[in-house]
């Protein structure tokens, strides 16, 4: 009897993320039954699409026991660059922006692994740099957000077309999720990332190339952020220099809600998907219930604290961010 009691409790804590998702959806459905209408679901999937790659990306860095605060700023910068150029250059911009993401991740990863600097500081600096880039680039166009000219919209319109009733952006996000699951479970990189998150010294002794693995984690993260930025451009059909300001909070809340530990070594992309669903449901549900949008930040903050508090290891090792 004594053995089953804690195991039930830990099972409960481990799966509380599903419970919280169901709870949120049920509550909003009771408040407003049209929450689960086709129109509302289409809306939510469009909103969810850019967030999912970002959350899946930052999850890799969290598995490795580091943090990346720059993803919101990277998404802003990518959104601005894509928005200003996609009309003239066409969809090839996507490829360039992915390479841009790889470059950002490479710089962050090198500074963290080779430079032995705390990821927290490196990415905080990166945040201020890319945020500045986003603002500086949009200044010659009057600052603020700028729509893609109507004539050139043809280039980006495909993204919001619907397949099986749901937007293409959403299917792409699901494809990226599947790729992340494969990376996590089937590749050496994925397994190494979890290994260094769980115990860096042991991983090094077991022959894991810690430097390369960390760089890979940061590259995956920045590419995820870049994809998020591109998707926002295609979704909003404009370049918005401040789009990323709240995204970091939403992405990291999603990952935390999925039960991924901030001390590294545990988590999965499927859990992140549930977390993203919950966050998007909260956001859309509050919109539909007519709550003042200013409450959103307050709610996300509380959700983040609650999620981290429930999932953190009690009495175990302290949370450490390398």
């Amino acid at each position: 009897m004594e053995k089953t009691k804690p195991s039930f409790k830990s099972l409960f804590v481990q799966n509380i993320y599903i419970l919280s998702a169901v709870l949120v959806i049920v509550v909003f459905y009771i408040i407003n039954p049209s929450f689960l209408s086709l129109y509302s679901i289409q809306n939510m999937t469009t909103e969810l699409a850019p967030l999912l790659p970002m959350a899946c990306g930052i999850a890799f860095v969290l598995y490795a026991g580091s943090i990346d605060l720059s993803i919101g700023a990277v998404a802003s910068a990518v959104c601005v660059i894509t928005g200003l150029n996609v009309g003239d250059m066409g969809n090839i911009m996507i490829l360039y922006m992915l390479l841009f993401g790889v470059m950002i991740g490479l710089i962050n990863g090198l500074l963290v692994s080779k430079g032995k600097l705390p990821s927290f500081i490196v990415t905080l600096c990166a945040q201020s740099i890319y945020r500045a880039i986003a603002i500086i680039l949009s200044n010659p166009h009057g600052g603020g957000s700028k729509n893609i000219p109507l004539k050139q919209r043809v280039v980006v319109n495909w993204a919001t077309d619907k397949i099986l009733g749901l937007p293409i952006l959403f299917w792409i996000a699901i494809g990226i999720l599947l790729i992340c699951i494969v990376i996590e479970r089937k590749t050496a990189v994925g397994k190494s990332i979890f290994a260094i998150g769980a115990n860096e010294k042991a991983a090094r002794m077991a022959g894991v190339n810690v430097t390369l693995t960390k760089i890979c984690a940061f590259i995956l993260c920045s590419v995820g952020a870049a994809i998020g930025g591109i998707m926002y451009t295609y979704k909003l059909k404009s370049s918005v220099p401040t789009i990323g300001d709240n995204l970091y909070m939403m992405a990291i809340s999603s990952v935390a809600l999925g039960g991924t530990l901030f001390s590294g070594g545990k988590g999965s992309a499927l859990r992140t998907l549930v977390g993203v669903l919950t966050v998007t449901a909260i956001s859309s549900g509050m919109n539909m219930a007519g709550v003042n949008p200013l409450w959103k930040n307050v709610v996300y903050g509380v959700v983040l604290i609650a999620a981290v508090a429930i999932n953190s290891e009690k009495g175990g090792r302290d949370l450490i961010i390398k």
Binding site: I67, M249, V298, Y300, L319
Partner: peptide, 13 residues
């Protein structure tokens, strides 16, 4: 036992 940067970030928001 929440890492200080997470709790302070959340409180700031």
């Amino acid at each position: 036992k929440i890492a200080s940067f997470i709790i302070t970030y959340a409180i700031s928001t």
